[in-house]
Amino acid sequence: MSASANIDDAQWREALQTALLAATRDVFPTAGLEQARFGIRTENERIAVLSFHGDNAEGSIGLAVNEEFLVQSHPVPEILSNTNTDELEDWLGELLNRIVGRLKAHLSHQGVDVGMGTPVVLRGASLMVRPQADTRVCAYAFKGADQAYVWSQLRLSRTQVTRGANEPRYAAQGVVIRL
């Protein structure tokens, strides 16, 4: 890394919002997104959550969408059974994986490298997502979709966080790199 500058709280909040929005748009290019108040309650019965961590930050990202949205977001919707719970949950986890893959790339441009876990799908009749202490949070709602949200929480470590001027560039979505 070459020249770097410290990132303050406001810059962090902006970086996370920008990265989450860009990552979600990468995965759902035609979806409209609007900022939502954090503290999400959903009747979707299932949400996917995935944690990520790095030298200087850790957090989680979540996705809640209904079954119709899930099926229609698949590149070959006809092969996805909307009555097969395992398949729908698997696809929900895969979509979240893709958002996190893109989020990592966008955060990297802000000087933060994070590793990610595997998605966990939670079920419940009514699910409430609350912010944890000391976290930067942001959430977006999908326009025109009933109770569909993506959100992220991020906690910085006490280590000084710096923004690199020449961070390595992640491969973008859809890119093919011949090795």
Partner: peptide, 15 residues
């Protein structure tokens, strides 16, 4: 991956 001899790296979703 390159050092381990992979032929290509494809970022999902690939058309």
């Amino acid at each position: 991956a390159r050092k381990a001899g992979a032929k290509a790296w494809l970022v999902k979703p690939v058309p």
